[in-house]
Design a protein around this nucleic acid. Structure first.
Lengths: 185, 185
DNA sequence: CATTATTATGCAACAAGGTGCATAATGTGC
DNA sequence: GCACATTATGCACCTTGTTGCATAATAATG
């Protein structure tokens, strides 16, 4: 149920097309919410039908119109209602951690590769977030309420990526010192 | 697709009933994988039908039989095949972070409550993990491969909870110094 | 002794998310 | 000039997860 509110939020901030929203989910909102373009278009159509959004057709020379979505008054109050309730925490479901419970069936070389992939990903994320931090939030204390809240979301991404990397460092040490004999107790 | 492998993993470690598996998801596997009892029973039935699991009927005086599930050879090789592939990272979808993009529509008092709830939850988790750490893993270097890998999963829970709390501390400072005027730029 | 919690199992309907495929235009590189 | 990437939109089907409901026994609590 929350995808619709992520869309309403994003469109309240700045009207956009389905394509642009998909891009935002891949970049600025990457550590906040994810959705495929198919999911975005489907939900936008539904929200429009429910009159929580309305469409502005953008003419393009020699191309079909672009559809830019805006929130309606009903859309904003639906969003406000949702914002007013405490939302349940997302459930954790991490296949990498599941693997750690496979005991003797787990191949350490594969695990190592998977940890390396996560490390690479986390480092890339962290670097990306740091660039945004220094470019857009060099002095967060001077920002408006609006941007200070968004900065908090960015900080969350940074702290999560750092926590990942700290854990990965521990994991690497563990793997290096691991007796390759299974042996239960 | 990963629920089935979480179940196969758990049952490879220790045969169990649907009920017991549900309990494990709520406790020992809380930071690893989540599933409701309905989902667990449904998937167990499916896995049994596909002959990846088999059932042992446990007689109980004056009660219907308990059904304890075991992995089959086919089950173990299906699990091994899954373990051999690098699994994609779970997508992040956090309604709390979505709210930070709602700008002027967001009520700070509600946000504060939500942060407090997360703090309480994270503290409780951390305390729980720490007890397990000190009870079951007082000297991780001496443990078998099997338990050292499980210890890694626990460490992940601990580092995540700590990262949450660090972020919450930052968030509280931000909220306290926030100009309550919206004002975009 | 009635009520509630815990153990133990499941079905049915629905919502949310993922996968595959399709189309159409422009721009880019070889 | 042809293949591929990017911008831009969507449908249909399938899997996964959630919600509501149901049953039945024992244990604990007042």
């Amino acid at each position: 149920m929350a995808l619709r509110y992520a869309l309403l939020c994003a469109l309240h901030e700045q009207p956009a097309t389905g394509y642009e929203l998909t891009q935002r989910f891949k970049t600025r909102l990457a550590n906040v919410w994810n959705a495929s373009h198919q999911q975005v278009y489907r939900e936008l159509a539904k929200l429009q039908q429910e009159k929580l959004l309305l469409v502005e057709a953008i003419e393009q020379p020699n191309k079909p119109d672009k559809k830019r979505y805006h929130t309606t008054l009903a859309g904003r109050s639906a969003l406000e209602h949702w914002l007013g309730q405490i939302q349940p925490r997302p459930a954790t479901r991490d296949p990498l951690l599941v693997k750690l419970f496979a005991g003797d069936l787990l191949d350490l070389a594969v695990l190592h590769n998977e940890l390396e992939a996560l490390k690479k990903e986390s480092l890339a994320q962290l670097e990306y977030y740091r660039v945004i931090e220094q470019t857009y939030f060099p002095n967060p204390g001077t920002l408006s309420r609006h941007y200070r809240l968004q900065y908090l979301a960015l900080r969350r991404g940074i702290l999560s990526a750092e926590a990942n990397l700290n854990w990965l460092a521990e994991a690497e040490v563990t793997l290096q010192n691991l007796p390759n004999v299974p042996g239960r107790p």
